[in-house]
Every structure is written in structure tokens, then in C-alpha cells.
Simulated scan of single mutants.
Amino acid sequence: MTALRPERESGAEWYGTGAYDASQEPYASAPYDPRASAAQYASPGRTPGYQPPGYASPGPFPGYDSPGAPAGPPAPAPADDETMALRLPEPPSDVPSAAVATPAAPGGRAARRKAAKGRHGRHGGAAAGTPRGREEDARSSRPLSRVEARRQARARKPGPGVLISRIVGEVFITTGVVMLLFVTYQLWWTNVRAHAEAGNEAHQLQNDWASGKRSPGVFEPGQGFAILHIPTLDVVVPIAEGTSKSKVLDKGMVGHYGRGDLNTAMPDARTGNFGLAGHRNTHGEPFRYINRLKPGDPIVVETQDTYFVYKMTSTLPVTSPANTSVLDPVPKGSGFTGPGRYITLTTCTPEFTSKYRLIVWGRMVEERPRSKGKPDALVS
């Protein structure tokens, strides 16, 4: 024990020498218990002012109160190893930081929530630098055992619902891509290819006419024999015999209703109806805008020897595909009342469908030999 213990034997000996032997005290061998009463440490011969250890007197001598002097408040215990029972124990190193009581953060719920995040991390995990955080870091850095690796692999493996949703999503994506490619092919690539084929056929026709390789007469199905001009719509397209989709129409050309196709007249016939068919959409779409033609607009058919000039007279916006009377020598619904030299243009309607047919009629107004040059409809 240190010399801070305020005990003495008697007044004279204690004052005179200042020496003190703790072994002479009857309680010297027992450790101090703050819960014990003061009577436990009482000794015969004590002066009236004696107090148990841990208390201080306002007098000049520790542990002694002069008669009549008021007792002062107890002095605080010295902070040394002898008074460790008065201190809070340090938390053991193996106890998680979450088990240590933390005073509530002032400032309301928001401040307490912020303090909790600082202690336990953003999502409730152990904060970095705490024993728990160091333990988690060590656990994550060590190599996994075979069992743990299998467990993690099974946890990462998607379930049946996830696999089914992925398959369905991939099917939809693939279907969408295929449909997009099909639409691109139909609306763009078929036109590019048909324009190239039609332009090549028209160029070949003009070269053959210039060299005299072809002569008017009966033509084979799919064989080009004339060129159609619609100046108002900026259309220049070859005319081939027949209305076959694969041999004529899908190649960007206009087909003549010839033998086997209602057998309409040729342009050089003295009377009759020259019937033509063409795509309104895709594959060159030469007749896409024939609905914009107005009465009086020129329609010119160029052959090896002659230009045949027609003037648009009337139109039939919608009719059934089975209505073949529109191709009669005197077509019904056209307004023509007697035989003449007519032209009929047919195509599908509405656009991008083939449910109905759109009909445009014209009457021949001029027959001009090629030797006299182009007609005014093509020059202007």
C-alpha cells in the first residue's frame, strides 16, 4: 500500500515521527472493500475524527478532524493501480464492437442514424478497422475450402425462373432482330435491287433498238419490249410481257396483261385497252404514287419505233382484285362509251397491302414515230 492511506496509531507517536507501519493495523492484510461499512475498519483508540480510507479531511492532517471542525466532502479517489475497482473495464479484444454500448448521438433521429452508419458501415456491416471488420477482411482474404467454393458456386448458379426468363428474353430479342432485318429487306433492299435490274433492262432495250436487234411482234413472257414514262411522277420503267411476280414485277418492271393474263391489246393496236400492272410498294414500287395523277397528265409508252402518248382521264380508287372488267376493251367505270385506244394502270391498295386494287385510265392522244424525235411530254 502507498503512503496515501490516511491511518495512524496515536496522536503523539504519529505526529512526532511521521512513520507509519501498515502491518500494525488490524485490517492491513485485507484488501479494501468500498462496499463495507466504516465500522469494519474501526480500531480502539481512534480519535473521534477518524474516517475510513478513501475520505479526506479539511484539516491540516490527512484522516484527522479537529474537534469542532466541520467534516468536508469526501475527496476523489486517486487514479492509480490501487483504485482500479473504480474504473470502467476495457472491452475485451475478442468482443465485437457492436456489443460495446455506444452513447446515443445527440441531434435527433437523423444524427443517430448517421452515427450508426459510421459504426456499422453503410449497409449494416462491420466498419473498417473494427475487430469485426478485421475478422471479415481476414476471412475474405483466406483461400476457400472445397466445400465453401461449392456452396458459393451453387449460390451463384441461376435458378430455373431466371433461366426461363433469359431464354424468353433472348427469343424476343432474336425475333425482333429478324423482323427488323425483314422489314429492312422489304422496304429498302428490294427497291435497291429492283431499280438496278429495271435500269439495266431499260438500258439493254435502248441498245438493242439502236442496233436493230429487236423488232415489233409477239414477245415471250418476261421479255421487255417497251419503256413507260410518267413525267409527273418521274417514273421511267421497262415494260415486260406478262405479270409474273418472279419474272417481271419483282424485278422492278411493269407487266403487260398479255396472253394468258386477260390478253389486253398492244399499244399499236387500232382499238383496244393496253393494260399494265406494277408494284405499289417494294420491288421498285413504280406505281406507288399513281393515285396523285390528275386528268390531263401525260403517260408515254416508248417502243422501238414509236412514242404513244396518253392523257390521264379518270381513276377508280378502290375495287376488288376480281374485277377484271376494268381491263375490257371499253373498261367499265372508266367513263369511256365506245371503242378507242386506251391505257389502264393497276396496282394494289391501300399501301403495303394487296386487299384491293387501284385503277387509273388514260386515252391515247398522240402516236409519234421515233424518227421525229421525242414528244413534247418528254421534252418539257
Rank of each mutant, 00 (worst) to 15 (best):
M1W: 02
L4V: 12
E9Y: 11
T17L: 11
D33Q: 14
R35W: 05
R35K: 12
Q40I: 13
R46P: 00
T47F: 07
G49E: 00
Y50A: 14
P60Q: 05
P67W: 08
P74F: 03
P76H: 11
P78S: 12
M84F: 14
L88A: 15
V95D: 05
A110S: 10
A111M: 09
R112L: 12
K117R: 15
K117Q: 15
R119E: 13
R134I: 06
R134D: 15
P143I: 02
V162H: 03
R166M: 10
V171Q: 08
G176Q: 02
L180F: 15
L181P: 01
F182C: 11
F182K: 02
T184Q: 01
Q186S: 06
Q186E: 07
T190P: 09
H195K: 08
A198Y: 00
G199Q: 12
E201C: 11
A202V: 11
L205H: 06
Q206C: 05
A210K: 12
G212T: 07
V218A: 14
F219A: 11
T232R: 15
T232E: 15
L233C: 09
V235G: 11
I239N: 04
A240G: 00
L249K: 06
D250H: 14
G255D: 05
L262V: 12
A265D: 03
P267T: 02
R270S: 14
T271W: 06
N273C: 13
N273R: 09
F287V: 06
Y289Q: 13
Y289V: 02
N291E: 14
K294N: 12
P295F: 05
G296C: 06
Y307D: 03
F308P: 02
L316P: 00
S320R: 07
L327K: 01
G335I: 04
T346G: 04
C348G: 06
P350G: 07
P350M: 03
F352E: 04
R357C: 04
I359C: 06
V360C: 09
E367T: 13
K372C: 01
